[in-house]
Computed example of a mutant assay.
Amino acid sequence: MIIGVPKEIKNLENRVAMTPAGVEALVGRGHTVLVEENAGIGSGLDNKRYIDAGARMVNAVEAWGAQMVIKVKEPVPAEYQYLRNDLLLFTYLHLAAERRLTEALLAAGTTAIAYETVQTDNGQLPLLTPMSEVAGRMATQVGAHYLERHQGGRGMLLGGVPGVSPATVVVLGGGVVGTNAAKIAMGMGARVIIMDLSHSRLQYLDDVFQGRMTTMSSNEANIRTYLKEADLLIGAVLIPGAKAPNLVTRDMLAFMKDGAVIVDVAVDQGGCVETIKATTHANPTYVVDGVVHYGVANMPGAVPHTSTFALVNQTVPYALKLAEHGFAALSQDHVLARGLNCHQGKLTYDGVGKAFGMEVTPLAEVLL
């Protein structure tokens, strides 16, 4: 198969979808890999390393002209021109927050497999997990930065100092993002409250962290109560492939302190805070009702070296299956099949259909 790796063009997105080691694995199986020139520069990977691994360096048109295109982020409008009905696209999509992209993929007839909806039988998301780990850890670092007074925050040090109370960090969601955010916040000395719907998950977190954080059931009453105490609120809610629910509404901001900070990691799925909107690394924050909002939708792009290697470690085994068998790989691997969002003009993922009121074709029917 001919596989294309375009350069990411989303604002300040420096990750790349394939490392030289990944290229070597694909080329070693007899496949051709076309990497757009300088695609890896932002991650510290120069063209020579790709050439040495067996890739051909090409321009954007040639990379997108491959049978399968592997990316990091969803196509942006400037890339819609490359979508076509014989293209297999393997990338993060987050379609439940991107109606325009959903319609473009369907109109083009592109077969689109989303990293974030590849799901194991026990509910794990192997291709989302590495970026969730990065984003969760970054959320606390970012929040600590914007709590500084000259950044618009309350002027608090997350961990405090002897004789002065630390900041209070409230984390909505106890999954991979929330757990990693809480871990870093505790490591920095903050007081941490984490909320989740699952009692068994709260039991697990209480056990693993030996009671060093407060675990609370996620409901409206508890959210309202702890918003009053939050210096930093981290949104870490995930419903795989679907739009995130608004757990913090506009009226709830009135409970928060002036200069408090919200970092909503769920923004790429619409956000769990009603007032959040997608921002960029170039212009990451804005203020609503005295509360600083951080809504960068590609947070891991700020640490591309770490993020690229963490992501490609997980995607390469699936990329090899797709390269070997094409669309038929989905019939052979039901975990990978769950990643299918669009195929030949048909929407195949329930969460996206519910978000936009679109008709969904059952996956089993498409695979037949």
Rank of each mutant, 00 (worst) to 15 (best):
V208E: 01
V208L: 10
V208M: 07
V208T: 12
F209I: 00
F209M: 13
F209T: 06
F209E: 06
F209P: 08
F209L: 12
Q210F: 00
Q210Y: 02
G211V: 01
R212G: 01
R212H: 13
R212L: 03
R212P: 03
M213T: 09
M213Q: 15
T214D: 13
T214G: 00
T215C: 14
T215E: 08
T215Y: 02
T215I: 08
M216D: 04
M216A: 14
S217P: 02
S217K: 06
S218H: 01
S218W: 00
S218V: 01
N219D: 15
N219A: 01
N219T: 05
E220Y: 09
E220D: 12
E220F: 05
A221Y: 14
N222T: 12
N222S: 10
N222V: 08
N222A: 10
N222D: 09
N222C: 04
I223K: 03
R224F: 00
T225D: 03
T225Q: 11
T225G: 00
Y226L: 06
Y226P: 05
L227M: 09
L227G: 10
K228F: 01
K228D: 02
K228W: 02
K228T: 14
E229H: 04
E229F: 00
A230S: 12
A230R: 08
A230Q: 11
D231Y: 04
D231N: 13
D231K: 04
D231Q: 04
D231L: 01
L232G: 12
L232T: 13
L232D: 13
L232E: 12
L232I: 11
L233T: 13
L233H: 10
I234E: 01
I234Q: 01
G235F: 12
A236F: 02
A236N: 07
A236M: 03
V237D: 01
L238E: 11
L238N: 12
I239G: 05
I239S: 07
P240N: 01
P240T: 04
G241D: 06
G241K: 04
G241A: 02
A242Y: 11
A242Q: 15
A242N: 14
A242L: 04
K243V: 10
K243A: 15
K243F: 12
A244C: 11
P245A: 02
P245K: 10
P245C: 03
P245S: 08
N246P: 09
N246K: 15
N246T: 11
L247G: 05
L247Y: 13
L247Q: 10
V248I: 11
V248A: 05
V248W: 14
V248M: 10
T249K: 15
T249Y: 01
T249G: 00
R250S: 14
R250V: 06
R250F: 02
D251L: 00
D251Y: 08
M252Q: 09
M252R: 13
L253S: 11
L253G: 08
L253C: 12
L253F: 15
A254H: 10
A254M: 03
M256L: 05
M256R: 06
D258S: 13
G259S: 07
G259Q: 02
G259A: 11
G259I: 15
A260F: 11
A260K: 04
V261D: 07
I262S: 06
I262V: 15
V263M: 08
V263C: 07
D264M: 13
D264Q: 09
V265Q: 09
V265S: 05
V265M: 05
V265G: 08
V265F: 06
A266W: 03
A266S: 15
A266Q: 00
A266N: 01
V267E: 02
V267Q: 04
V267W: 11
